[in-house]
Write a protein that binds this DNA or RNA. Structure first.
Lengths: 196, 196
DNA sequence: GTCTATACTTCGATAGAC
DNA sequence: GTCTATCGAAGTATAGAC
């Protein structure tokens, strides 16, 4: 059984060139923004011919979607592994302040704004991530008996929002209050983790 | 006295065409993302010829910078006017949850990531806004005597981060916990504003 | 299965006409 | 002071050679 719409052939998923193109796309995206991710630049970054982008990924939208999917999946696995090893509030907070992850997220949200094909993909992942994150946070908060003071969903948004904005501002070189915020959260967590 | 580098002539700042181009650029930016802001599309949106973009703004970077500057200035004025009329915590919180403002910010932060010329402009404005916002927040918190429980700079980041992430997620259709977060913050503020 | 030759479109920018 | 004619570079994508 073949594809229903035979349009044009595509390269295999396990090809080395394909992986290099994905790596190149991700690098460009994070370092120079989504507008820098063009077929020509991606190919140059990967040391390949521009046309190969269209051989392995029919359209640029497909390349974007696949780049996102691959990183999103890796992030989710990394999160779950880290939490499985140590589900403390401290770990959850540390995972919220990863700068590279925040840049990646911002870039894709901006991208979703003008590439409707990517939008659904990103929204689906966002929901998924939020679900596992909320479960982990709720568990950690319940263990400390603080879920009554603040609903875990609210704590989740505060924590994620804080991490996101510090990463965003950090990329701009604006860091007013960042140290104070980190110190404040660290102290609050230490207090909670302390009186078990 | 003329310009030191006479490169090429530019249209006047008060031209109507110029204003229409800026309006068009801003509309495209917010509605379709920065990659949609091309000389041709901006001109079409404004009902003008593409070359006029380069007449009124030498380069696309100049157009972006001017679009940002104009909106940033307006935002700052709007903020200061609102706070002057009512500097309550409620007002400050409401101003942090403006969706259109957040989309604008996100788009420009992503843009700054790959247009170094814009970056400095954005960073400068970010600092400026944060300064007046912090002053207003510190005043409001001092008036309620809550600055001891949480440094205003920390409250500022939490508030801004929460507003930002809700706007970001809202644009994607992800709204888990948003209502709960708004209710939580509203209740907290009501409690504080209540016992004057 | 892998890649190249090539078509067609849109981009930013400048020089010069009105 | 305002706008048009036009260029060269870069963009996505396809058909077909190896």
């Amino acid at each position: 059984m073949t594809t229903s719409t035979p349009a044009r052939r595509l390269g295999t998923t396990d090809s080395q060139s394909r992986t290099r193109l994905l790596d190149a796309a991700e690098r460009l995206l994070v370092e120079e923004g989504y507008a820098a991710v063009t077929s020509r630049r991606v190919a140059a970054e990967a040391g390949l011919k521009p046309q190969l982008v269209h051989y392995y990924f029919r359209t640029m939208d497909d390349l974007f979607a696949e780049t996102f999917r691959r990183r999103a999946e890796a992030n989710l696995e990394r999160f779950e592994r880290a939490v499985a090893a140590d589900g403390s509030l401290h770990t959850l907070w540390r995972l919220s302040t990863d700068a590279r992850g925040a840049v990646f997220t911002t870039e894709f949200v901006a991208l979703a704004n003008h590439r409707k094909a990517i939008r659904a993909e990103i929204a689906r992942y966002a929901e998924r991530f939020r679900t596992v994150q909320l479960a982990a946070l709720a568990a950690a908060m319940d263990a400390r008996g603080v879920s009554e003071h603040m609903p875990p969903e609210v704590a989740q948004l505060l924590m994620t929002g804080l991490g996101q904005i510090m990463a965003l501002e950090g990329a701009l070189g604006v860091t007013t209050g960042h140290d104070a915020a980190v110190a404040y959260v660290d102290a609050a967590i230490a207090r909670l983790e302390g009186d078990g």
